[in-house]
Nucleic acid binder design. Structure first.
Length: 510
RNA sequence: GGGUGCGUAGCUCAAUGGUAGAGCAGUGGCCUUUUAAGCCAUUGGUUGAGAGUUCGAGCCUCUCCGCACUCACCA
C-alpha cells in the first residue's frame, strides 16, 4: 500500500505517526457533539437579542476541517457538520504554545475535529467558537480534492472544486465531502420519499415488501438479471417490477398496498438508465385508471409542495406547474396532433408502418403495432410534453396486465403521466379476469418469439391467485429517480443516485 | 454493441513533433480578528496502459482501459 501513496499522503502519515508518538490517539473511540453549527449560531443570535449572549456557557462542536487560516499566533478554521459550517478561533491565550504548535503542525484540511468553547463574534461580525479545548477525532490521510469557495451576497462562488464526473461517481464519498450541493440533492431525495410515504399512509395504504429474488420474473418488458441459489439448485431472477406480487396481496384482501424499492433491469446504462433503480408501485382495490389519475396529480403536486414549497418548479429552461388538474388527452388524439397520424385509421401493423415510412419515420417491418405506437410516442410525443400531461387509452398488445375498455377490446384503460419531456408514471385498471390474463400471457409470448429473455415465462402461480378472485383495482408505478430529477431540476439520473453503476476499472480487477 | 470527443501534479487546467507549466492544495519562513487571508521561498509528473513511426512523441499511428455525449437496445 505504502508505495501507492502520493507525497501528500506520505506527509500526512508522518503527522499521524507524530501524533501517536505524542500519545495522541488520532482515531479515538469517543466523541462529543453537544450542538451543531447552525443550532449554535441560531442560539447565539437569539441570546444576543435577549442580551444574554455572554452567559451561554460552553458548547462542543464536531466536524470536518474545511478551512484553515493560521495567522501568526492565531488560527481561524471552519468546520463543517451535517447542517453547515461554523468558524473556530484558536488563540495561544486560551490554548498555550504547545497545543497551538500541535494544531499548526499536525492538523490538516479534511481531518475530523472536536472543539469546545464559548461562542463570540469576531471583529468582522462572524459568529465563531473561541476554542478552549479541542481534539482530533479522525485524521485524514488522503487530502480532499481541493475545494475553495466563498459566499458573496448569499451566493456560493466556487474557486476550485471536484468536477470530474468519473471521480465524483467512483469516489462519491469525496464528492459528497466537498460538494455541499450534492449532499443537498440526497436530502431532497429522502424528503421526496418520505412525502410519498406520508401521502399514501394517510390514505390508508399499507407499505409492504415483496421478493427481490423471484423464480419467475414479470410485470414489465425487460431483461432480468439471473442468479442462482446453490442449496436449492434453483435459478432465480432479480425482480424487474413488483406488480405481480403486489396484486397477489389484493387477492389476499390487503386492499391498498404500496412498495418502494429497487428494480433491476439488465439493459443499457446511460444518463437515464441505471441497472438498478427505485420504483414506487401502489395498488388500490375498487379504484380504476380514472381514479388513479386524480390521485396521481394530487400525490405529485403534494410532494412538490412539501419538498419545494410550491407546485411550480424550474427544470432547465422550462417552468412547470404540477398543480392539478394536469392536461389530459387520448394517446390517439395526442399522436394525431404531434404526427398527423390517426392510429385508428391504421388498425394493423402493416398499415401503420407504411404511413410512418411515408412520413419519413423509422418503422422496421415486422414490428408489432403496439411497439410502433410506442415508438411514435417516445420519438415524437414524449419530448414535447413539458407541462404535466396524462395520455390515456393505450393499445392492448403493449399492455398485457391492463383491463380492456368495455366498448373497445383493442384498447385498455391505461394512462401514462409525462412532464419535462419524459415519462414519469404509468398506471391502469388492473386486469383481474384470470382467463383473459392467461390469454394475454400467451399472446405476449408469441410476439416475443425471437427473444427468449423478453418472452416472459408464464406465471402460473399468479394465474392461480387471480382464480381466487382479485377485486377490481387501479395500479400505479413511478420511477422515483425520475421524480427526484424533476423536483431537483437535474438532468442526469446519475446525479440523483448515490452510487451509480460504472464499469469496473483495471484497478478493481486486481 | 456503433459513432464522436476526452484522459497531463492531490484538484482545476495550459503546453507548433524540440528542456512538461500555472493557480489552488502541500512543505519551510513572517504575521494576535482572518475568512478564496496575505507576503517570501519551495517540493511535486511512468502525460490512462502498451506497442509503433521519428534524430526526437503529451502531441502522429495502432491496440487496450475508463469517462462523457450520442445512436441502438429499453412499458
Amino acid at each position: 500500500m505504502a508505495e501507492n501513496l502520493s507525497d501528500l499522503e506520505k506527509i500526512r502519515l508522518g503527522k499521524l505517526k507524530r501524533l501517536k508518538e505524542q500519545g495522541v490517539e488520532p482515531y479515538p473511540i469517543h466523541a462529543e457533539q453537544s450542538t451543531t453549527s447552525q443550532q449554535a449560531i441560531a442560539t447565539f443570535e437569539a441570546a444576543e437579542k435577549e442580551g444574554t449572549a455572554d452567559k451561554l456557557g460552553e458548547v462542543t462542536l464536531a466536524g470536518r476541517i474545511r478551512g484553515l487560516r493560521p495567522m501568526g499566533k492565531l488560527i481561524f478554521a471552519h468546520i463543517e457538520d451535517r447542517n453547515g459550517r461554523i468558524q473556530l478561533f484558536f488563540r495561544v491565550n486560551e490554548l498555550g504554545e504547545a497545543r497551538m504548535k500541535s494544531l499548526m503542525e499536525d492538523y490538516d484540511l479534511g481531518d475530523f475535529i472536536q472543539a469546545s468553547g464559548e461562542l463570540m463574534r469576531t471583529r468582522t461580525g462572524e459568529i465563531t467558537l473561541l476554542v478552549k479545548d479541542f481534539k482530533m477525532l479522525a485524521k485524514a490521510i488522503t487530502p480532499l480534492p481541493a475545494a475553495k469557495d466563498e459566499v458573496v451576497d448569499g451566493e456560493l462562488i466556487r474557486h476550485a472544486s471536484l468536477t470530474d464526473p468519473e471521480t465524483r461517481y467512483r469516489q462519491r464519498y469525496a464528492d459528497l465531502a466537498v460538494n455541499a450541493d450534492v449532499r443537498t440533492i440526497f436530502r431532497t431525495r429522502a424528503h421526496i420519499i418520505r412525502s410519498l410515504r406520508d401521502f399514501l399512509d394517510s390514505r390508508d395504504f399499507l407499505e409492504v415488501e415483496t421478493p427481490v429474488l423471484q423464480p419467475v420474473y414479470g410485470g414489465a418488458a425487460a431483461r432480468p438479471f439471473t442468479t442462482h441459489h446453490n442449496q436449492l439448485k434453483q435459478d432465480l431472477y432479480l425482480r424487474i417490477s413488483f406488480e405481480l406480487y403486489l396484486k397477489r396481496l389484493l387477492v389476499g384482501g390487503l386492499e391498498r398496498v404500496y412498495e418502494i424499492g429497487r428494480d433491476f433491469r439488465n439493459e443499457g446504462v446511460s444518463f437515464k438508465h441505471n441497472p438498478e433503480f427505485t420504483m414506487l408501485e401502489f395498488y388500490m382495490a375498487y379504484a380504476d385508471a380514472d381514479k388513479i389519475m386524480a390521485l396521481t396529480e394530487e400525490m405529485v403536486s403534494s410532494v412538490a409542495k412539501q419538498v419545494k414549497g410550491s407546485t411550480v418548479i424550474e427544470f432547465g429552461e422550462h417552468t412547470i406547474d404540477l398543480a392539478p388538474p394536469w392536461k389530459r388527452a387520448t394517446l390517439r388524439d395526442a399522436l394525431q396532433e404531434a404526427t398527423g397520424i390517426d392510429i385508428n385509421e391504421h388498425p394493423d401493423a402493416e398499415s401503420l408502418a407504411s404511413i410512418m415510412q411515408e412520413k419519413g419515420m423509422e418503422a422496421k417491418p415486422g414490428t408489432p403495432r403496439g411497439k410502433l405506437i410506442d415508438g411514435l410516442l417516445s420519438d415524437h410525443l414524449e419530448p414535447i410534453l413539458i407541462q404535466p400531461t396524462f395520455l390515456y387509452d393505450y393499445p392492448r398488445d403493449i399492455s398485457p396486465l391492463a383491463k380492456s375498455k368495455p366498448d373497445d377490446p383493442q384498447t385498455v384503460e391505461r394512462f401514462e403521466g409525462f412532464t419535462a419531456g419524459f415519462e414519469l408514471c404509468n398506471a391502469f385498471s388492473e386486469l383481474n379476469d384470470p382467463l383473459d390474463q392467461e390469454q394475454r400471457f400467451i399472446e405476449m409470448g408469441r410476439s416475443y418469439e425471437n427473444d427468449d429473455e423478453l418472452r416472459h415465462p408464464m406465471d402460473e402461480d399468479y394465474l392461480k391467485a387471480l382464480r381466487y378472485g382479485m377485486p377490481p383495482a387501479g395500479g400505479f408505478g413511478m420511477g422515483i429517480d425520475r421524480l427526484v430529477m424533476l423536483l431537483t431540476g437535474i438532468r442526469s439520473l446519475r446525479e440523483v443516485i448515490l452510487f451509480p453503476h460504472l464499469r469496473k476499472t483495471d484497478e478493481d480487477k486486481l
